[in-house]
Computed example of a mutant assay.
Amino acid sequence: MTAAPDTATRAGRHAAASPADTAASHPGTGPTDRAVGAARVTLRRVIHSEWIKLFTLRSTVIALLAAIVALVGLGVLFAATSTGQIAPGGPDGGGPPVAGLDPATLSLSGVLLVQLITGSLGVLAMAGEYSTGMIRSSLIGVPRRLPVLWAKTLVFGGVVFVAMLAASGTAFLAGQAVLAAGDAASLTLSDDGVPRAVVGAAAQVTGVGLLGLALGGLLRNTSAAISTLVGVILVLPGLITLLGADIAENVSPYLPSNAAAALRSVVESPELLPPGQGLAVFGGYIVLALIAAAVLLRRRDV
């Protein structure tokens, strides 16, 4: 993710007034007045500056639109494939692994891909500033540093959650309509567990995005952070299964991806944690990653 040179300048103006600018515009300004100027940094202004930085980048809008289209489109595709309305592709007739999935899970299957999109976007939101050098301007405007991370978390998490909640609701409704048209079992939003599954799908992709943001702050390198995120979300669950059935049974439910999957499961599975425990475990990973990013942000040089 790259930013226009004036993005940091515009954002910095909203975060705080520079003491040097204050002195220049008011000749004879003393140290006290300069301290007052620096003290004008507020979380609201930092949030405003992060909003500007996030939406100044065209890639943010493109990535969010791609995530919405993927979540809705894959939900419809999997539902249509399960009813035979779309014939499975491939020379051997193989298609998406839809057999045995409940109707809600079918409609929300796009989460598996979309979480990588939001995770990569989260990495870019943080690590991109290090690659462009814009982080220096951000921290000059906000010398205490931590408000920058908290503002990024609030802005990014809020925007992604709202967009993905709308997308998951649309994916569910569209998928159930396809299932009903194919004379297959379908659900409504009022059925038990469905509202939690729809909100859980949005929470999962948002949470992975926040993990990406934290990894971007920890590693300060876009490619390294994205590779680590993909490894944790996709590769690690497969590696655990190679360690034996007993270890996999005891460890797998507590991995980030499996803990998050419990949030969007209408039918509780013995292979997953209960939804409440899954939320606690998945949220714990996010909190710990953000705390680690905050500690290093305070201790390291830019």
Rank of each mutant, 00 (worst) to 15 (best):
I140A: 10
F161M: 07
V142Y: 06
A177E: 14
A127I: 06
G175I: 07
G110H: 08
S137Q: 14
V162S: 13
L106G: 05
L154V: 15
I135W: 03
V111G: 06
G128P: 04
A167R: 04
L121N: 00
A171S: 11
G122Y: 07
T118K: 06
G93W: 15
A181D: 15
L101T: 08
G141Y: 09
L173A: 12
T153M: 11
S137D: 14
I135A: 09
P96G: 14
V155K: 08
S190W: 07
G193D: 06
S131T: 15
A174W: 11
V155I: 13
P103E: 13
P143W: 04
L121D: 02
K152H: 06
S120Y: 08
V148R: 00
L101E: 08
G175K: 01
I140T: 13
L149N: 00
D183P: 03
S168E: 12
S138F: 10
M164D: 03
V178G: 07
L146R: 13
S186K: 02
V159T: 14
Q176I: 09
P147E: 13
E129Q: 10
G158Q: 10
I117F: 09
A181H: 15
M134I: 11
G122V: 03
G119I: 02
A174C: 12
P97G: 09
L179D: 05
R144H: 07
L189H: 05
I135S: 11
P103T: 11
L139T: 06
G128R: 02
L179R: 02
S168P: 01
V162H: 06
G193I: 12
A127G: 12
A185R: 03
A163D: 09
P147A: 05
L149S: 00
P103K: 07
V159D: 12
T132N: 07
L108F: 05
I135D: 11
L101Y: 10
I135P: 03
I117G: 01
Q176E: 15
G169R: 03
L116E: 00
G141W: 04
S137G: 15
M164I: 10
G193K: 00
R144C: 11
G122T: 02
R145I: 03
Y130L: 04
T170C: 06
P147F: 10
R145D: 03
